[in-house]
């Protein structure tokens, strides 16, 4: 699992360099949804994913992203629910 952890890449989302160790845990402990797009040229990334993650985890990681405004509306709803629960 950690054999590539020190490999480095420029992260387009964050805007700085980081290691594979971050990419494989970015998504609440699971890999970043962009992991294949970013690493396909450098590592046998498909093989890595297949060997280390269950099919349902891979489904979760690669669920197709929603448009930005749609996801903002979802986050607003989630935040409202959290606020209501907070004593």
């Amino acid at each position: 699992m950690n054999q590539y952890d020190n490999e480095r890449i420029y992260c387009r989302r964050l805007g700085h360099w980081l290691t594979f160790n971050y990419c494989r845990q970015e998504n609440s402990g699971l890999p970043c949804r962009k992991i294949e797009d970013c690493w396909f040229e450098k590592l046998p990334i498909k093989k890595f994913l297949k060997e280390n993650y269950k099919e349902e985890e891979i489904s979760y990681i690669f669920k197709v992203q929603k448009p930005k405004l749609t996801s903002i509306v979802e986050l607003i709803e989630q935040a409202k629910k959290r606020s209501n629960k907070t004593p």
């Binding site: 949804r33 294949e36 396909f40 489904s59 690669f62 992203q65």
Partner: peptide, 9 residues
């Protein structure tokens, strides 16, 4: 590549 996983997802 996420589209590769379309069927799974």
């Amino acid at each position: 590549f996420a589209y590769d996983h379309g069927d799974t997802a």
